[in-house]
Simulated assay, not measured.
Amino acid sequence: MTDLSAFPITKRWPAKHPDRIQLYSLPTPNGVKASIVLEELGLPYEPHLVDITKNESWTSEFLSLNPNGKIPAIIDPDGPGGKPLALFESGAILLYLAEKTGTLIPADAAGRWETVQWVMFQMAAIGPMFGQLGFFHKFAGREYEDKRPLARYRDESKRLLGVIETRLEGRDWIMGQEYTIADISMLGWVRNLIGFYEARDIVEFDALKRVPAWLERGLARPGVQRGLAIPARG
């Protein structure tokens, strides 16, 4: 049996199945990237709920795995060379698991790097901008008298949706006819923007044609549906 005792995080979240990938997460737009890709790939894994509302990601055990204190993070007991590998950052997890399995990423170098660039686009732009819009539209930021931050993030979010809309012209998925980790990286964020963040109207989502259809296709996938609810909230 695989021994994961060298990882302090397993003391707080014990591994019942140490031979499986250990997932430490919460169903947030970033967290579901990891659970969705694991479901889509059919890899055996064990999910652990890290409740960020209780600051569990700032415990010493979690910080031993991710010093940045953010979910998701994983331990793969069968990492490179057969040795356990701990990994954080959702984009890195997507790339690692896709390359580990040779799935959800094109085999040719050009297609691979094109996919990587769209994952980086999500990490650098969609996540931060949509998240800020959520803060200023729904959460504490909405109380600010100065509405310029809200306007800035609203306009930038609309622009980013326009980038995806243009990219999807003549394509079912970000990379064409092939569903990849580029789609997985974005689905949860777009869903969250118009759902949990309640920003559908202010970003004029229904004026788009391709992005809503893409989102509907993605959310219809069984692996996505399962991944959106993992780990189950207590």
Rank of each mutant, 00 (worst) to 15 (best):
Leu161Arg: 06
Glu165Leu: 06
Gly162His: 05
Trp113Thr: 05
Ser185Thr: 05
Gly218Arg: 12
Glu99Thr: 13
Arg210Lys: 15
Leu87Met: 08
Ala107Ser: 13
Leu95Trp: 12
Tyr144Leu: 14
Trp173His: 09
Lys138Ala: 08
Gln177Phe: 01
Val119Trp: 06
Leu94Pro: 02
Ile202Lys: 12
Gly134Trp: 06
Gln117His: 12
Lys138Phe: 01
Phe196Ser: 04
Leu150Phe: 15
Asp183Phe: 13
Glu216Ala: 15
Gly131Phe: 15
Gln177Tyr: 06
Ile93Gln: 11
Leu87Pro: 03
Arg159Glu: 04
Asp183Lys: 14
Glu178Ala: 08
Phe135Cys: 02
Asp183Ile: 13
Leu187His: 11
Thr166Phe: 12
Gly141Thr: 08
Asn192Gln: 11
Arg112Gly: 03
Phe121Pro: 00
Asp146Ile: 12
Arg171Asn: 15
Thr180Arg: 10
Gln177Lys: 14
Tyr144Asp: 01
Ala125Gln: 12
Ile202Glu: 10
Tyr96Ile: 01
Gly162Phe: 10
Gly195Thr: 11
Ala125Arg: 13
Leu85Thr: 13
Ala98Gln: 06
Thr166Ala: 15
Asn192Cys: 14
Leu95Val: 11
Tyr179Thr: 06
Thr115Ser: 05
Gly91Thr: 01
Leu215Arg: 09
Arg200Cys: 03
Lys209Tyr: 08
Gly134Tyr: 07
Gln132Phe: 14
Gly170Met: 06
Leu168Tyr: 00
Ala182Thr: 02
Val116Pro: 09
Trp214Val: 02
Gly141Phe: 13
Arg167Gln: 14
Phe121Cys: 12
Asp172Leu: 15
Leu133Trp: 11
Ala110Tyr: 07
Glu198Pro: 04
Lys209Gly: 07
Leu219Glu: 04
Gly102Glu: 03
Gly134Ser: 05
Val116Tyr: 15
Val119Ser: 02
Met123Ala: 14
Tyr197Glu: 01
Arg217Asn: 06
Asp155Tyr: 13
Ala151Cys: 00
Val211Arg: 03
Leu97Gly: 02
Ala92Gln: 12
Leu215Trp: 09
Leu161Met: 09
Arg152Glu: 07
Thr103Cys: 10
Gln122Arg: 01
Arg217Tyr: 05
Trp118Arg: 05
Gly102Gln: 05
Gly102Ile: 06
Asp183Pro: 11
Met175Cys: 14
Asp201Thr: 08
Leu168Trp: 02
Ile93Val: 07
Ala98Glu: 04
Pro149Ala: 10
Met123Ser: 11
Met129Ile: 11
Ala125Trp: 15
Ala199His: 02
Phe136Gln: 01
Glu204Ile: 04
Glu216Ser: 11
His137Tyr: 10
Arg200Ile: 05
Ala124Pro: 00
Glu198Arg: 13
Met186Lys: 01
Tyr153Lys: 05
Leu94Val: 01
Val211Ala: 08
Val116Cys: 10
Leu97Ile: 07
Asn192Val: 09
Ile194Leu: 09
His137Trp: 09
Tyr96Arg: 04
Gly102His: 04
Ala110Thr: 12
Leu97Val: 09
Thr180Gln: 09
Ile164Arg: 00
Ile93Thr: 10
Leu219Ile: 02
Ile174Gly: 00
Phe205Gly: 01
Ala213Phe: 08
Asp108Gly: 03
